[in-house]
Design a binder for these strands. Structure first.
Lengths: 247, 247
DNA sequence: AGAATAATGATTGAAATTGATTGTAATTGG
DNA sequence: CCAATTACAATCAATTTCAATCATTATTCT
């Protein structure tokens, strides 16, 4: 039996049972303990499993999605600069709308001790803001499972009755001719309403979102100020058609 | 059996039943008491559970309520029976109001696969319900930091516009003459509104809440059905003045 | 084929895990 | 309140698992 086959079998067992014991592998693969141990060591070096006393367990799936059930957000360096710049635009007594999503979430630590009121549709955002003792109002309505964002008619109706000095939005696509776009139609509706209820709106995006177009349009390109990283030359034309701030 | 597998089994049992006893684990896992105890100690060190006399309980949910210390497996089993009985009253197509708080939170695992709509003011409740794929609407408004409950005028206003077939409430005090009471005035207002918008209201309380009186009255004693544990003789008079169900 | 290289299996002392025991602490049921 | 029961942490001996080493057997290259 080839080394490769043994490795495959081990991975297969792991996917099926979460764990394997050295002894099981010895009997099922008919090789010596030494060989099995070496296999496990090799596979661990390749980050394909984690060894535990007596065998091995499945490696925890690499964090595939930026889910938001933790208060510890991975602060990707570039994103961090964006959210820092955005937070610096906020003054005392502002009434802020904070859109759901990871980028806006990372603004929150920079808002400590500001005397402001924040309205948000992000459930984790509201929880964290409350923990920071910031006056927070969470929109009501349906919760979108993956992003933990509040969406739907009730939320829109509530939004219609309030006004903001500034809104900070996340966005999936920014394009000069197609404007601001996002794939989820319900989220698009909320975003659109929030922007319309705000004096000034800012869209926080990293460079990967530029020249992207998604299903549903949220706003025209001139309705919001874009906050992003320093623009490479290839995106130079954005400066002619938009208000843009570079972090 | 690998250590890892035992740990997984223990966590699984906890997610399903809130508690596990050492003895159950000994019989079901076929290992010595010593090993099981060591497992529990390890898992507690990793913050994955809390040990209590006789076994372990689920790590405290983010729903913190300054409730009595649940120091034994037995006591938690009692509480669990209450939420199980409450959940059994729910039928398909009900529109339910689920109050914030730990007792109502523990109803949620029993609601799996029911075809219902739930409105709640508990943020953690809404998140968990969504993860169980139950149609959920979260009230909007201010978040109370300690309990993560939504309170305030916006929430009350939203409540005024909806109606429920059944409401399940937590409560801090139940007394025959003073009725249902709670210490927080904002939460009292929400509770009162929810009860008034519901056909039938149930109050889930363990025995420690009986003959307790707190600051703000929520409802008269005859407005809700009480769901609690089997009544000891000293509380016998409750049966004459209230509708009461004993789990 | 013959040498070099790689993979395997056996052995060994060290390290980790386990189950039993024991004396103490907590809980229960009068 | 006390006695009986049950649960507990600490300890220790027995067992299992481990990494390192070395001799043996495949495989590869020239």
């Amino acid at each position: 039996m080839l080394t490769e086959e043994r490795h495959q079998y081990i991975i297969e067992q792991l996917n099926q049972h979460q764990t394997v014991s050295v002894q099981d592998l010895v009997t099922n693969l008919g090789h010596s303990e030494s060989t099995i141990r070496r296999d496990l060591t090799t596979l661990e070096d390749q980050d394909l499993l984690v060894r535990v006393h007596g065998g091995a367990k499945k490696k925890r799936e690499p964090v595939d999605e930026p889910t938001m059930d933790e208060k510890t957000v991975k602060f990707i360096h570039e994103k961090e600069k964006i959210s820092q710049l955005a937070a610096s635009l906020i003054n005392d007594f502002d009434v802020i709308y904070l859109d759901a999503g990871t980028t806006t979430y990372s603004m929150i630590p920079h808002l400590k001790d500001k005397n402001i009121t924040i309205v948000t549709n992000g459930v984790p955002h509201a929880v964290l803001l409350t923990d920071y003792n910031i006056e927070t109002i969470l929109l009501g309505g349906r919760i979108k499972q993956r992003t933990k964002a509040i969406i739907g008619a009730i939320a829109e109706q509530t939004l219609a009755e309030v006004n903001f000095t500034k809104a900070f939005m996340g966005m999936n696509g920014v394009d000069v001719s197609q404007g601001f776009t996002t794939p989820d139609i319900d989220e698009a509706a909320i975003k659109r309403k929030a922007i319309s209820q705000s004096n000034q709106s800012y869209v926080l995006v990293d460079l990967s979102k530029l020249e992207e177009v998604h299903f549903k349009k949220v706003a025209d390109i001139d309705e919001c100020t874009i906050i992003t990283n320093t623009l490479p030359d290839k995106y130079h034309h954005f400066k002619e058609y938009t208000r843009i701030m570079e972090a």
